[in-house]
């Protein structure tokens, strides 16, 4: 039995189509990533999976339970961390966790082993109001609250937005550990390095899934030539490369710019063209596509 089975679901708000015939399955114990632009339908999807809103069409089962008929049973098995911080700002750290434990008929003590690794960072602040925590701490508390009733499956809607790179890394180490403990995880993220750490990734755009693959297969499916270029004049370089014949798509990529090419592209001609425009310290090499390049390619379509 798959952990999640989604069949042909659609959801609209008035004239706005949030989800348009989405189907997919998530395996037991899988770490499943969802990436896509803002407004692509990610949050609606999470809310349907969490039994919080109803799809207009289609069926969803989670752990064998129907999200509509069996929602009460299902809610005991789901942990959901929404994109917006949704804990009680004026309860303390400890009170929030106690509250969520109590709602699910359990205690912090009973399930401490599940949250202990994360909660230990919060112990020094356990009397502090949740609203007074920094971004990284809020996110750790929200994860604890989503885990305290021992769910089989965890939904995380952009859990690391606003979180610094060190805390992000720690957060993903925690997720990997929860996965080893057998928890199925569905996570959305705007960070492509995080997408890379998932078993499979679904790309969602305009309410449709446009591909579900392992990160490796997504990278391999990148089918156009890709280059990396750098000069002493990076701002100007972007538009200069874009204006050159045979260049399709050029975008900033960390310390270089990446660009894809089509028919009629000539590397040596680009080099002398850029030199002619006064670019200094030029560097130009073929590049290997990353998940981020694949995303950029799809976003253009």
């Amino acid at each position: 039995m798959p952990a999640v089975k989604v069949e042909n679901i659609s959801k609209s708000y008035g004239k706005t189509v949030a989800l348009d015939g989405v189907s997919f399955e998530v395996e037991q114990g899988e770490l499943f990533g969802i990436i896509g632009p803002d407004g692509a339908g990610k949050t609606s999807l999470f809310r349907i999976l969490a039994t919080l809103i109803l799809a207009d069409e289609g069926t969803v089962t989670v752990e064998g339970f129907d999200v509509v008929k069996d929602y009460k049973e299902l809610r005991k098995r789901i942990g959901y961390m929404p994109g917006r911080f949704s804990l009680y700002q004026d309860l303390s750290v400890e009170e929030n966790l106690q509250f969520f434990a109590a709602v699910f008929g359990t205690t912090i003590r009973e399930n401490y082993h599940l949250v202990g690794d994360i909660y230990k960072f919060l112990v020094p602040f356990r009397k502090r109001k949740a609203g007074k925590l920094s971004g990284g701490m809020k996110q750790k508390l929200a994860l604890c609250c989503a885990l305290i009733h021992k769910p089989d499956i965890l939904y995380l809607d952009e859990p690391t937005t606003g979180v610094d790179p060190v805390s992000r890394k720690e957060f993903w180490e925690m997720l990997k550990k929860l996965q080893r403990d057998g928890i199925t995880i569905i996570v959305s993220t705007p960070y492509m390095d995080e997408a890379n750490m998932c078993d499979r990734i679904a790309l969602i755009k305009g309410g449709r899934f446009i591909g579900i693959e392992t990160p490796e297969n997504i990278r391999r499916s990148f089918s156009v030539p890709l280059w990396a270029v750098r000069s002493g004049q990076m701002h100007r370089l972007l538009n200069d490369v874009r204006a050159f014949s045979g260049v399709k798509n050029c975008y900033a990529f960390g310390e270089t710019h990446h660009f894809t090419t089509g028919e009629g592209f000539d590397r040596d001609k680009l080099w002398s063209y850029l030199e002619g425009l006064g670019h200094t310290s030029l560097w130009l090499e073929p590049a290997e596509a990353t998940i981020e390049d694949c995303y950029m390619q799809l976003a253009k379509m």
Partner: peptide
């Protein structure tokens, strides 16, 4: 943090 939570394509347009 002007680009928090923004996808890679939109972030680049912002920059």
């Amino acid at each position: 943090e002007p680009t928090g939570g923004v996808d890679p394509y939109t972030r680049r347009q912002f920059w």
